[in-house]
Design a protein around this nucleic acid. Structure first.
Lengths: 201, 201
DNA sequence: TCTTATATATTGAACGATCAATCAAGGGAG
DNA sequence: CTCCCTTGATTGATCGTTCAATATATAAGA
């Protein structure tokens, strides 16, 4: 062998790939060992107690996922005309990343069978996306840049408007057959959103 | 036994339940037979050639799913202030139906592994939801009730705005912890959408 | 109507394949 | 010699599927 490799990481990466494409039940210890280049599946049990633990380890490794907005607080006082497009583009960038796409497929595929995964996924988008948006939008209402309204709805609305396009990248290419580009969609969506929430009339 | 039951339908229903909660790989012929009240898994093979065929039969049975909007064409000329809330409420009603929820879980869970299922799901929402919205919104632009804009974006936007709330019902309860009701959301969303697309003043 | 023949429904048992997991032994580095 | 890494072989369980045998229903013949 050319070099001493980090076996554990090697196994984790192969398991990530296998779990994402075949699901927990569909991926076998043997197939993971094969994908990792091991000569025997037994080696996996030297690094992980069992298949379940390997799965959880995979989840932990890739759990962070590039956050949609990493410099959250610094955006709080900036005007929505610049912040919302920024958020939307960051969202699409996250959805375009192949590793994130695999992670999404992995989690969505297992979320039905594993309440913990569903919770992880739900909580991630809720806390990382919706909660920030809620407080940001509330702040903008406070500043008089948006008219008073229920930010629970507007936060869902803004994030939601991006979902069909993002889902098209990750899961359902059929949604993108009309050729609308991400940038076009961001522009149109922000315009609708801000037009619908502008202060006075 | 009390009555002569339709074995085939009985098996299909049990298989639906099992596939939806455990996935294709997770559901076993034996567990399906048990859920259907059969004394032997062998009987399943009298009605279906194999597990794969049983799965496809389940998909076919429940494929229709109550359409979001059944009287589509009659809505084309009605004003968006009445049509959009109607669509939104129909959407939430579909998402609240327990059978539809199971079907969604089944399809979403298998969509990762089965391109055919992903296509079915993507095409269903695209053709049944987006395409109608696109033509409806275009018609409303034509009538001067909405300002000219790219209806590929606005169709995505309107449907998307509903998704976080619907996803909360079906998969991720964590999204609904702030207690926003469906009706509140429909009202707020329609207001934002129409405000953002109202004709020039 | 009673019996017989035929087709369908249902069953328990069994098959080979494959799974996750175990184990004792080999191999190389220090 | 010692310790950790790695391996091939193997275990018992469970999987989808098959099969021969039985039960039940339907139809025909006398």
């Amino acid at each position: 062998m050319a070099e001493v490799v980090e076996r554990r990481g090697q196994i984790l990466e192969a398991a990530f790939e296998e779990f994402a494409s075949k699901g927990f039940k569909g991926a076998t210890i043997k197939s993971i060992a094969g994908a990792a280049g091991l000569q025997s599946p037994a080696l996996i049990y030297h690094y992980f107690p069992d298949k379940e633990a390997l799965f959880n380890a995979v989840l932990e490794v890739h759990a962070p996922m590039r956050s949609t907005v990493d410099d959250a607080d610094s955006l709080l006082d900036l005007p929505p005309g610049t912040v919302l497009p920024k958020i939307a583009r960051a969202y699409f960038a996250t959805a375009s990343n192949p590793t994130n796409q695999r992670m999404m497929r992995l989690m969505v595929g297992e979320a039905m069978r594993r309440p913990g995964v569903a919770d992880m996924l739900g909580r991630a988008t809720a806390e990382r996306g919706l909660d920030f948006l809620k407080s940001y939008l509330s702040r903008q209402v406070q500043l008089g840049r948006l008219r008073p309204h229920d930010t629970r709805s507007s936060a869902r609305a803004f994030l939601g408007m991006l979902i069909p396009q993002a889902a098209g990248m990750v899961l359902f290419p059929a949604l993108l057959t009309d050729g609308l580009t991400d940038d076009e969609h961001v522009g149109a969506v922000v315009e609708i959103f801000l037009g619908g929430l502008e202060p006075e009339r």
